[in-house]
């Protein structure tokens, strides 16, 4: 026996979803795109990137769709102009903190592109340019490379390590603009409780954690040649 669904309106269409469904889940099920950077559907909603904003009739302002549960009678606008403009601003801020543009295949680059930003423009192109993260490469692990300067503190790696693998090898470190990630006590993956499952690299939206082999390929002048 199924519990009665929750009926809501999203972009003009009537939807019925199971109780407890978030607006983001409802939108994705309906094939509607909402930008996200800290979301991974294997992980509990985190609410950090703040770009999944949508308009909800009667709300004080845009709400984060990943942490807002659908309620009966809600009228939701996923293309809400203010929400999208703010989301774009947030992504512009994120692009401004990386010393180099994100690689084209990364989720960050793709989300930026889709929001109308040029992900290849570099940090100085942002309207709010300023300090960027210091390059710091850790490739002590045979498979995993960690480029701290690409970390945008979305917490996905830390949560994947926690909620998928249960290895608890990663943590957020520092605070504010200087927040980053670390494995174990900071001495790298190999010296931590890491089990090398790669879930962190899979979920990373910027390649801050990436596969070393791919990292080396990209670094090679002719990366296709280097594969051989």
């Amino acid at each position: 026996m199924s519990t009665p669904g929750v009926k809501l309106t999203m972009d003009g269409a009537e939807l019925e979803v199971a109780p407890g469904t978030t607006l983001l889940e409802a939108a994705r099920a309906a094939g509607l795109w909402i930008p996200t950077l800290c979301f991974d559907d294997r992980l509990a909603p985190f609410g950090a990137c703040r770009i999944c904003l949508v308009g909800v009739e009667g709300a004080k302002g845009p709400v984060a769709s990943c942490t807002t549960e659908a309620r009966a009678g809600m009228v939701v606008e996923t293309q809400h102009a203010l929400s999208r403009r703010i989301a774009r601003n947030v992504v512009e801020l994120v692009l401004s903190e990386l010393p180099v543009p994100p690689a084209p295949h990364t989720e960050l680059a793709q989300v930026a592109q889709r929001l109308g930003l040029d992900p290849t423009a570099g940090p100085a192109a942002a309207r709010w340019a300023g300090v960027t993260h210091e390059p710091q490469l850790d490739h002590r692990h045979p498979y995993l490379a960690l480029q701290h300067e690409l970390c945008i503190s979305c917490g996905r790696c830390v949560r994947a390590c926690d909620e998928v693998q249960g290895a608890f090898a990663l943590t957020a470190v520092g605070r504010g603009f200087h927040a980053n990630i670390a494995a174990g006590l900071g001495a790298g993956f190999a010296e931590s409780s890491c089990v090398s499952c790669g879930a962190c690299a899979d979920t990373c939206p910027t390649d801050a954690i990436s596969e070393r082999l791919l990292f080396d390929l990209a670094a090679a002048p002719d990366h296709r040649g280097a594969a051989r």
């Binding site: 294997r42 498979y143 998928v164 499952c197 879930a199 596969e211």
Partner: peptide, 11 residues
């Protein structure tokens, strides 16, 4: 595996 794998399968 639901989007997960291990040090053997992946690497």
């Amino acid at each position: 595996n639901k989007g997960h794998t291990c040090v053997k399968g992946r690497f």
